[in-house]
Design a protein around this nucleic acid. Structure first.
Lengths: 177, 177
DNA sequence: TTTTGCATGTAAAGGGTTACATGATTAC
DNA sequence: GTAATCATGTAACCCTTTACATGCAAAA
């Protein structure tokens, strides 16, 4: 229930179009919150109706028009309230683990194949997170201070991906026997 | 889209009632797949209608009647097919990280409080997973072989929780400054 | 000329949460 | 007596996914 709040957080940092938000969900924020463009446009509509954000159409040359959304006073209040509530624990729904848990119908080879595909994705994610981390380390102290909180979320991503890959190694060792 | 498959996996191992499945979702399997009882009963209804499982009412003494579900031939085929498809990557939706990412409106103290509450939950989870791990180590070699795959999922849980707690330590160090 | 990027949506179906609802037994 | 465990469900709402839908501009 907090795609709504994720959007408010983003618009609070910077006025954006649906398309801008979508790009953020597919990069930075996307490592811990997922949303498809259809969902984003729907939420923006709803948030507008509830007057938590406003919308202004912005003509562009050589590109389609943009709708730029801004958080309102009311939106900021709602956001602030949400920030002060205890956050709900993240829920894990991992199909790969369900499969392994009940995978005695499969050959170890088939399981390994599936694990390897996931491993490739996690390896890519980790390397792009590490790239961001290096970029952070090159910042000035003032900038580091400014990006302290997003950096913490980056660290969560890195530690999470490292743990995943460590597990994959264990799993491969077990299944290769 | 695989609560359906999670249930088939469970019923393939052992015929169960909705209540039995619910208990499993709240313990073992619950570490990587979540479902509420209302959802389970609805899925069981649907799976029955699609003839992937059958239902038999079983009277009990001193307890309410039970509906015991069993996987059918057709259900096993559907399950097998799902097992052979590449599994969809787990999606992360973590409100705590959204909060931290955009948490400049909050005091470090408020963030720490939220993190600490999550930490308590993760600490508890980890200790119960470790208990299961110790129980596994006490098994005979034959039994260990038999529980090899569930053990892998247990290891995933342990490595995941350890990584979470390691991150929390980092986050606390950062925020205490 | 085909793909990629920009930019926005609607509609239907499916999955998940919250609230409501019941009722017996067992353990404290 | 009061809470926990056993056991099952319906209804309304909300959130998410998939499919459908359009159209221009720039780069390859």
């Amino acid at each position: 229930m907090s795609l709504k709040h994720a959007i408010l957080v983003m618009l609070d940092k910077e006025p954006s179009s649906g398309y801008d938000l979508m790009k953020q969900f597919n990069s930075g924020l996307g490592y811990f919150w997922n949303a498809k463009h259809q969902q984003i446009y729907q939420q923006l509509k709803k948030l507008s109706e509830d007057a938590l954000i406003t919308c202004e159409e912005e003509p562009q040359h050589g590109k389609p028009d943009k709708k730029v959304y801004r958080i309102t006073e009311k939106g900021q209040q709602v956001l602030k309230q949400w920030l002060h509530e205890p956050s709900v624990p993240a829920k894990i729904n991992d199909a790969l683990l369900v499969k392994i848990w009940g995978g005695h119908h499969l050959t170890p080879k088939a399981l390994l194949k599936d694990i390897t595909e996931h491993k490739n994705r996690h390896t890519e994610t980790l390397s792009s997170l590490r790239q961001l981390e290096r970029a952070f380390h090159d910042l000035s102290d003032a900038e580091k201070m400014h990006y302290q909180l997003p950096f913490l979320t980056l660290r969560r991503g890195i530690l999470g991906e490292e743990a995943w890959l460590k597990w994959a190694q264990e799993a491969e060792n077990t299944l290769k026997k």
